[in-house]
Simulated assay, not measured.
Amino acid sequence: MSGRNGWSTVFEVDALRLLVTVAETGSFTAAAARLSYTQSAVSRRIATLEQRAGGALFERLPRGVRLTPAGRALHRHAVEVLDRLSRAGHELAVLHAGQGGLLHVGAFATANISLLPTALRALEDARPQVEVVAVEGPTDALLRRLVDATLDIAVVSDYPSGLPSADGVTTTVLCEDELLVVLPRAHRLAGATTLDLRELRDEAWLQSAYGDRPTMLDDACARAGFTPRKIIRIAEWAGKFGYAAAGLGVALVPSLAAPAVPDSLVLRRLSDPALCRTVQVALPATPLPAALELRARLHDAVPHR
């Protein structure tokens, strides 16, 4: 309904609740007693509701009232509306208490290998009514979604060029994530404990980055005094591992990705201390309780090295 017959939200809910109560009790007097109204107040409100509905909703009987056909039609919708509002109120209550509701979570790719799944498993065990909606993306995109309120929490990193600014978003450091080199087990340097990047100057390198912006590999090679002989562009980690296992190239791999490295490959440390990134948890200005609990679970899930 609209215009002069439009309903304010407060009056509509109150009026529908009154309609349902009168129908359940069968009289204005009994409905008044249940809702702590006067009988005359109930009569006036029902009369106003009938005026807005365009006709009588109750038949007035010698003893009590009963719904008219129009009243039964409106009563059916009123019960549905009140039930939905009740369920919405319950869902909001458990959401704000951290006991349930939707939690939108974002993370960059290698955080989804073990770190985030381990934390989500612990969250689900503790709060089974929390329903997680997970997305994957680069840090800058995840921070934008936090600002836009389409994410409730995100796992981000300062690689490759630091954390972009994001209004109202706060971050907490989770861990330092060292970049290692992945080699085939048959590689001539696979038995070394730590490698100098210059020992790999003749290798082909597997990486996913495109464009003119320098990558961490470019910066590291420049510090070591050489330019990669060959770059093979492979977007997904599974593809990089496949190429490396076939002896077609080597790659920098975050230590967070170690659980996904197949047995045909080995990870080795590099002597360059700059080959490291910081992994952080990002939250909006007013985080949900479930997001705060997931942040704690993420801290618990950080691998101990």
Results as ranks from 00 to 15, higher is better:
residue 256 L to S: 15
residue 172 T to Y: 14
residue 101 G to S: 11
residue 107 A to F: 06
residue 293 E to C: 12
residue 165 S to D: 14
residue 23 A to G: 03
residue 195 L to T: 03
residue 243 Y to K: 03
residue 53 A to F: 12
residue 292 L to K: 10
residue 85 L to P: 00
residue 262 P to E: 08
residue 43 S to G: 00
residue 283 L to M: 10
residue 187 H to P: 01
residue 90 H to K: 10
residue 154 A to T: 02
residue 154 A to H: 04
residue 8 S to E: 13
residue 105 V to T: 06
residue 8 S to W: 10
residue 235 A to H: 13
residue 263 D to K: 09
residue 137 G to D: 05
residue 25 T to R: 12
residue 176 E to Q: 04
residue 140 D to A: 10
residue 227 T to N: 02
residue 45 R to I: 13
residue 121 R to P: 06
residue 169 V to A: 09
residue 281 V to Q: 03
residue 211 G to T: 09
residue 52 R to N: 06
residue 58 F to H: 00
residue 286 T to A: 12
residue 211 G to K: 08
residue 244 A to T: 03
residue 95 L to R: 15
residue 191 G to L: 07
residue 7 W to I: 00
residue 235 A to L: 14
residue 90 H to S: 13
residue 232 I to D: 10
residue 192 A to I: 00
residue 247 G to L: 11
residue 13 V to F: 13
residue 123 L to R: 01
residue 128 P to H: 11
residue 285 A to K: 13
residue 267 L to G: 12
residue 2 S to P: 09
residue 286 T to V: 11
residue 251 A to L: 03
residue 206 L to E: 08
residue 303 P to I: 07
residue 64 G to H: 04
residue 296 A to M: 08
residue 134 A to C: 06
residue 43 S to H: 04
residue 276 C to R: 15
residue 41 A to W: 02
residue 293 E to P: 10
residue 144 R to Q: 11
residue 122 A to V: 04
residue 45 R to G: 12
residue 207 Q to I: 07
residue 34 R to T: 13
residue 175 C to R: 13
residue 108 F to T: 01
residue 179 L to N: 05
residue 187 H to Y: 01
residue 257 A to M: 04
residue 87 R to V: 06
residue 210 Y to N: 03
residue 128 P to E: 11
residue 302 V to D: 02
residue 146 L to M: 01
